[in-house]
Design a protein around this nucleic acid. Structure first.
Lengths: 223, 223
DNA sequence: TTTACTTTAAACATTTTATTCACCAGAATT
DNA sequence: AATTCTGGTGAATAAAATGTTTAAAGTAAA
């Protein structure tokens, strides 16, 4: 994970500063918007926003409007900030594709934890290029190079490798892999993973060894 | 916080689905059981359940029975779902070690909030790195280092050492070890443990001495 | 529809791990 | 000291998990 850029949209400058300072401390870059319209502008002009934090109550466009607008063009993760205890709002939010919901007042620690969780589960920050241990993965082009040579991967193989790389050094159970790479409602054979791992390994040539078997557990990517 | 896995036990599939869908949206993995017996089975066979949600009314074993059974072997957080307003039940529940009590009907939001709160206060799900007496155990990577040197452990050996370390300074009977490291339905020879202890000790080299024999009793890990 | 490809599943081979057992050594008991 | 337990050990066996191959089922493109 490289630098992450987060857009915070809130009309209260105090709140923006609070969030910004804390995120900065955690190595996260922050861009500010003081109303909904500005938030949209910034998001569309800067192409590398990894995540958006939206206050519900804002001038010009409120959080819901911004959310709807951006969702029609992008799947960027969105966190909504709201006053405590409005459940019907929350349901509306999930329908609109809000990823997380944090009610004010919140602790900055929670915010960072949620951001981390979201970025991890949405596979990092989307469109970027990662290079690790001789493996270069260009997510935009959907291409993978091993030692500079392009290899041809199927979709599942690509996603699997992507998940491995995102969790490098972590032993992953088959269940965990299924739940993250496959849809959560997939109830097929976990051994299917083995087949994909085998093909991935062979397509990766020597570098296939980077995918280790963790006996009785699952697999692990190690560079 | 890594991925959290929650077990939901309820005989109504509608209820299970409701909870599952909502938790999934919040990045929480869900495993379902449709009666008490199955809940126990799943909990003991899957070793990484972070929290259990039990309906009181279930076929085979009701929520109280499941709670009692699991509490005799584990401190996993338990949330009990019950019909509104039965106070005497609630008292019983806390005696049995129930962590939270939610009466139906409840809002999904409440459920997630309670889960978050419980996991936060019980210190999450223990995916961490522990270092003690020259033994470093990285649970994420599933690796163990002795005096800085990586040693290769089998799954059982790893789990056994994990249990020893978690109970450092406590003399553990073979029965207790079996009940915690092995599946609850294991009825084999308790001497099996001796074999694993032997291999563990030898793989740990000098540091094998940290696993003491408590004569007529069992074993004890002491740093 | 045909074709090419991907994904999944099933069957079998191989490897690794878990368990049992027999035997020995040392501790506790008499 | 003799006897009886209890734990240590190493080899044999059983069980479990993974690797590999092949084929069927599913998809998307031509």
């Amino acid at each position: 994970m490289d630098t992450i850029k987060v857009l915070i949209a809130d009309d209260e400058s105090r709140m923006r500063k609070l969030v910004k300072d804390f995120l900065n401390k955690n190595g996260i870059q922050v861009v500010e918007a003081e109303n909904g319209e500005q938030a949209c502008d910034i998001f569309y002009s800067q192409k590398d926003i990894s995540l958006i934090i939206l206050d519900v109550m804002m001038p010009k466009m409120d959080g819901w409007q911004v959310c709807r607008e951006i969702r029609s063009n992008s799947n960027v993760p969105i966190i909504m900030l709201t006053a405590r205890g409005d459940e019907k709002d929350e349901l509306l939010g999930f329908e609109l594709g809000v990823d997380e919901y944090i009610s004010k007042p919140f602790s900055p620690k929670i915010l960072v934890a949620r951001i981390d969780a979201i970025l991890r589960r949405t596979g990092g920050m989307g469109d970027e290029t990662i290079e690790i241990g001789g493996i270069k993965m260009d997510k935009q082009a959907h291409e993978v190079y091993v030692d500079g040579k392009l290899i041809d991967l199927s979709l599942k193989e690509f996603e699997l490798l992507e998940f491995f790389i995102a969790n490098k050094g972590v032993a992953l159970s088959r269940d965990k892999i299924l739940n993250n790479v496959w849809n959560y409602d997939y109830f097929g054979d976990a051994r299917t993973i083995d087949t994909h791992v085998k093909k991935l390994r062979s397509k990766m040539g020597e570098k296939g060894d980077l995918i280790k078997t963790v006996w009785g557990m699952g697999y692990k990517f190690e560079a």
